[in-house]
Amino acid sequence: MTQYHFISGLPRAGSTLLSALLRQNPAVRAGIVSPVGSLVAAVLKDMGPDNETSLFLDEAQRAALLRGLFDSYYGALPPGTAVFDTNRGWTGRLDLLARLFPDCRVICCVRPVPWIIDSVERLIRRNVFEVSKIFGSDVGGTAYSRAELMMAPSGLIGFPLNAMKQAMHGDHSARLLLLPYDTLAEHPQETLAAVYEFCGLPPFKHDVDDIAFDAGEFDARLGTPGLHAVRPQARREVRETILPPDLWARWEGASVWRDPAFHRRVAVGGTPGADHGTAAG
């Protein structure tokens, strides 16, 4: 039987690196965002009150239909494969996942919010001849307006951040593992061992110096080449931010999981307050 686990959390926070490492294990399936999340959303809508025939679906049938989406998409995998399906929205559906897959776990990749904004901004400035769909193909804007769009309730950062905060304080918060980007990049073997243990999977020795992953076509279609690029070696890059100091300061307090009074689970490595690089502007 296929085991289902999930990768969620914030963008530009290590989910692609985590997937690239996990997929080295032949008993594991992982990748960038899959279509299952959007399929679940579509079926949930079709089973809602806007569809009068939904009256004929009981709870067991609804659950079976949703589980069937996962089993159909991953049906060709060998028996016993552990699937890590990636979607930023899974933390917003944690109650649903717990009902569908009672043994599932969710790995939430996190990174200080200003560094996420910095990372996206670097991509935008690097790809000067591209128009990124991240911002609705808007050719104008500045670092300030782009940050505002990303931090909006439905934005690239704002939505998954709010979904994660909701999950962290819900009934199923014990299913979450907060995984800081720096911890994964600096201590990949130890971090992966913690992920395997948390998910109840047998350990596996990964090659952290020969990482292969290619999502070039996907990134090109988004008008953002390099969005899912992964270095061949897992390591932490120390650099200075390109964000103006006032922009950095505005969103520094958004990294709420670094506050022990806020988060319920201790991040891998026990260092939820660790920063990436320096904040010098």
Rank of each mutant, 00 (worst) to 15 (best):
T2D: 05
L17G: 02
A20K: 12
L22N: 05
L22C: 06
R23D: 10
V28A: 06
A30Y: 04
V33L: 09
K45P: 00
D46P: 00
N51E: 15
A60S: 15
R62P: 04
L65K: 11
L65M: 15
L66S: 03
F70A: 08
D71A: 11
P78R: 06
G80I: 05
T81M: 04
T81C: 09
D85M: 06
G89P: 12
L96Y: 01
L97C: 04
R99H: 11
D103R: 14
V106D: 06
I107E: 05
V110E: 05
R122K: 15
R122T: 12
I124G: 01
R125F: 01
R126K: 15
V131F: 02
V131Q: 09
D138H: 03
D138Y: 01
V139L: 07
V139A: 13
S145E: 13
A152D: 14
P153H: 09
P153W: 08
N162Y: 00
N162P: 00
A163I: 02
A163F: 02
M164H: 11
Q166L: 14
A167K: 07
H169Y: 03
A174V: 10
A174N: 14
A174E: 15
L176V: 10
L176C: 12
L178H: 03
L178T: 07
P180G: 04
Y181F: 15
Y181W: 13
T183Q: 13
T183F: 01
A185L: 02
A185G: 06
E186H: 04
T191E: 01
L192D: 01
L201I: 12
F204M: 11
V208P: 00
D210Y: 02
F213A: 12
G216E: 07
E217L: 12
T224D: 07
P225A: 09
G226S: 02
H228D: 10
A229G: 04
V230E: 05
P232M: 00
P232C: 01
E237Q: 11
E240G: 10
I242D: 12
P245Y: 05
E252S: 09
G253M: 09
W257H: 14
D259F: 02
A261L: 07
A267C: 15
A267D: 10
G273S: 09
A279T: 03
G281W: 10
